[in-house]
Design a protein around this nucleic acid. Structure first.
Length: 277
DNA sequence: CTGAAGACCTGCCTGC
DNA sequence: TGCAGGCAGGTCTTCA
């Protein structure tokens, strides 16, 4: 399940493969993802054009050309895998992009997504920030200069549990279910605590915990969990160091108390009842 | 406005 | 063995 570190790792691989090169063709085997792929517009904005940049905003991967942007979101089960052939290599291959790197060497990026929660779209024009996908997004956790202060300010008056608050992309992007549990553990904050009741200093610790957790996962190549693979098809290796996620009834690595599981807003939360308060 | 719940989708796992 | 049912969750929509 791709979260921000997975998308960051993928973006780096795609950047090497595509920045300064061209998208030569885009074949769509089925266009009915979470929303229909705008096939004609996508081709018009991207095919044949030089890819000036490949970057990430939140969990979206963007490819910039002089005409606009290609936008890819992997949803829950999506993957973008590089191959030497256009022929689908596995079930649920929904799109195949023929690309050339800046030296002209050709390869293929296969978009694979069993559950079709993902999104392939495009934006015309020179800027992407004002588009509906992006206009309400909070800051990037890895580069925001004062994430703790920002979260503290945004949280005042909110009765929402801090875990739901932390996962709200309008507050900060890129903290999905796994990293929300892990970050709250690292910061020692109970996931059910009211967001508005958490002190400024604790938000400072939480912001540091979010950053450390995400960066550790990026270093490890993204969390391996069920469906995720990197663009070269290799799994990431972060799952081995998860402290609480999916560890219900197992001992806390810090204090040996039993890790507990609960449901918040329909999502599984894992926490240590001793380390987190 | 807030916050919670539902919908989307399909592979995998459990239990009968 | 087969099959029903629950679960996974990012994001958008709906509802109270």
């Amino acid at each position: 399940m791709p979260e921000l570190p997975e998308v960051e790792c993928l973006t780096r691989v795609v950047r090497v493969a595509l920045k300064g090169g061209r998208l030569l063709d885009a074949a769509f085997l089925r266009a009915d993802l979470r929303e229909p792929i705008p096939v004609d517009e996508f081709r018009r904005l991207l095919v044949g054009e030089v890819v000036e940049d490949v970057f990430r905003r939140s969990k979206y991967l963007l490819m910039k050309t002089r005409r606009g942007y290609g936008v890819i979101h992997l949803g829950m089960t999506g993957a973008l895998v590089q191959h030497d052939t256009a022929a689908p290599q596995e079930p649920h291959t929904h799109a195949v992009f023929r690309i050339a790197n800046r030296r002209g060497r050709e390869s293929y990026l296969h978009y694979v997504d069993a559950r079709r929660f993902g999104r392939i779209s495009c934006l015309a024009g020179a800027s992407y920030e004002s588009h509906a996908f992006f206009e309400n997004l909070g800051p990037e956790p890895l580069v925001c200069p004062d994430l703790g202060g920002h979260l503290f300010n945004e949280s005042r008056g909110r009765k929402q549990p801090i875990k739901a608050f932390l996962m709200d992309a309008r507050m900060v992007v890129g903290v999905g279910n796994i990293y929300a549990s892990e970050s709250l553990f690292r910061a020692g904050i109970h996931p059910e605590r009211e967001a508005g009741s958490v002190a400024r200093a604790r938000y400072g610790r939480l912001a540091a915990a979010v950053r450390e957790t995400l960066e550790a996962s990026i270093q490890a190549g993204g969390t391996t969990f069920r469906d995720f693979r990197n663009a070269d098809g290799k799994p990431g290796y972060f799952a081995v160091s998860l402290n609480v996620y999916d560890r219900a009834d197992e001992p806390c690595r810090r204090c040996a108390a039993t890790i507990r599981q609960l449901r918040q807003s329909g999502r599984s939360t894992f926490f240590c009842p001793v380390c987190q308060s």
